[in-house]
Design a protein around this nucleic acid. Structure first.
Length: 427
RNA sequence: GGAGAGAUGGCCGAGAGGUCGAAGGCGCUCCCCUGCUAAGGGAGUAAGCGGCUAAAACUGCUUCGAGGGUUCGAAUCCCUCUCUCUCCGCCA
């Protein structure tokens, strides 16, 4: 949610930001501004009437106490009450109208976000690691995984449905290794570990902006008012919902592993093979709460932190800055990190690090109290650190050798307990 | 799932239709007193939105878990919901 001041005082900035995003609205900003003014006038009117009524009430109470007749004043107050009810009903209608529109506005872009229409105009800002030359045909991860018995997508299809998977034996061990390796890395660098609930209520989904816009993407419980989380961002950001944080505690940096659940509605043709796009996947997420003046640096920090994982795993990757037209709804600025996939020789998103400025904080009502002065909204940021399934897929492809074995990245060997994986289980 | 209790300011806790935004305490801030030990005295201390200001001061409205209702008037009465706690049952 945006600051209402954007509409009242920084109208041009808001207009520009929407234009650069290529946001298509089914209403005009000017109408929204007029609506706001109308509401404001109405509220002033109501507040004046209430003032009169409150005064009358006091007079009535004095009269009653003195055992004097108050019927005339009571009658007057009743009339004002009726008038207020009428106006208040009107106000409720306009207010819900306004809110419906207001919640549809995406966050204001930070000024340095590159202009562009869509993802084709995203800007690569950093390439790291030269993809090696294999000298043989690299197997896609799903082929290798199946061949050496680490991955079973068919049976997951039987047990659940499409876009699910089993990891078996050392495959399962690798998942656990990645999870622990990532969490250990972040913890060592000062992030506080959080182990969150995977089901959250509707208020939390509104708090981080999944609702109302992305309802189609969420799994909902049939008999309980809960949703499966699409990312740990939701429970972790909502950890501080409706709270005022102490200045001294900022910045707060959390890391959390969670399973993530997404319906992936409308992506039927995409990534049907392998484990790149699943309804359930594992992810380690970083979430930061900071003072407004810190958020630019924090975005750099978590982007570096995510890259650190890939560097340690010695996987080639690139960092791209999302252009104005490709930026997510709540984000003011986003870096995506894309890992090199050796079989298809392209880069796939493995992390997305965003600065939400005060957009989520306003929605989720998360504030802090500066040393002196009134409480303000914090800035929130988050970034994957990293998507475990996609990291695993990248490893399957980048670490296979010409004998069809999978080599374990050095940093994972202590976690996996072996250096090289061939066919070890067979069901 | 069954039975009961509760939800009030940063925290504890009174309040039971009318000068209640809310006693008292703790905590915190400022001031005073005293050199002798974690003391004493005084003052202040919620948030949101609006008006007026250069900015304050000032001022209006709203807020006592959420929503609705009764009433001239609701923290107080009624209804619905949510959450918390205790006991029983079930259970990883």
């Amino acid at each position: 949610m945006l600051d209402i001041k954007c509409l009242r005082e920084d109208f041009e900035i808001l207009e520009d930001s929407l234009k650069n995003r290529g946001a298509k609205l089914n209403f005009s900003l000017q109408d929204l501004k007029d609506l706001d003014q109308k509401l404001k006038n109405l509220r002033t009117e109501i507040s004046n009437l209430r003032e009169n009524q409150n005064k009358l009430s006091k007079e009535i109470s004095v009269l009653k106490r003195d055992k004097k007749d108050a019927t005339e004043l009571v009658e007057k107050s009743r009339n004002i009450g009726d008038e207020i009810s009428r106006l208040a009903e009107n106000e409720r209608g306009l207010d819900s109208q306004f809110k419906t529109l207001w919640y549809q506005l995406p966050n204001i872009l930070l000024p340095d976000v590159p202009f562009g229409a869509d993802e084709s105009q995203n800007v690569p800002v950093n390439y790291c690691g030269e993809p090696k030359d294999f000298g043989f045909e690299v197997m896609p991860h799903w082929d290798l995984g199946k061949k050496i018995g680490l991955l079973d997508i068919e049976r997951a299809g039987k047990v659940t449905g499409s876009r699910f998977s089993f990891h078996i034996g050392l495959g399962a061990r690798l998942v656990r290794a990645l999870l622990n390796f990532m969490m250990d890395t972040h913890r060592t660098d000062g992030f506080v570990e959080l182990w969150p609930p995977y089901l959250v209520n509707e208020a939390s989904m509104y708090g981080t902006g999944q609702l109302p816009k992305f309802r189609d993407e969420l799994f909902k419980c049939a008999d309980d008012p809960y949703f499966l989380i699409p990312t740990a961002e939701v429970p972790v950001t909502n950890f501080f919902r409706d709270e005022v944080l102490m200045d001294a505690s900022l910045p707060v940096r959390f890391c959390a592993y969670s399973a993530c659940f997404r319906r992936e509605a409308g992506s039927y043709g995409k990534d049907v093979r392998g484990i790149i796009r699943q309804h359930q996947f594992d992810k380690v997420e970083m979430v930061v709460f900071c003072r407004p003046e810190e958020s630019l640096n924090e975005l750099q920090f978590i982007t570096e932190q995510a890259q650190k994982i890939l560097k340690k795993l010695k996987l080639p990757y690139r960092v791209i800055e999302l252009c104005s037209g490709d930026l997510g709804f709540s984000s003011a600025k986003t870096y995506d990190i894309e890992v090199y996939m050796a079989s298809s020789k392209n880069y796939r998103e493995i992390s997305s690090c965003s600065n939400f400025t005060d957009f989520q904080a306003r929605r989720a009502n998360i504030r802090y109290k500066p040393k002196d002065g009134k409480s303000r909204y914090v800035h929130t940021l988050n970034g994957s650190g990293l998507a475990i399934g996609r990291t695993l897929a990248a490893i399957y492809e980048y670490y296979q050798d010409d004998e069809g074995y999978l080599n374990v990245p050095d940093v994972l060997i202590p976690y996996v307990g072996t250096e090289r994986i061939g066919l070890t289980t067979c069901f």
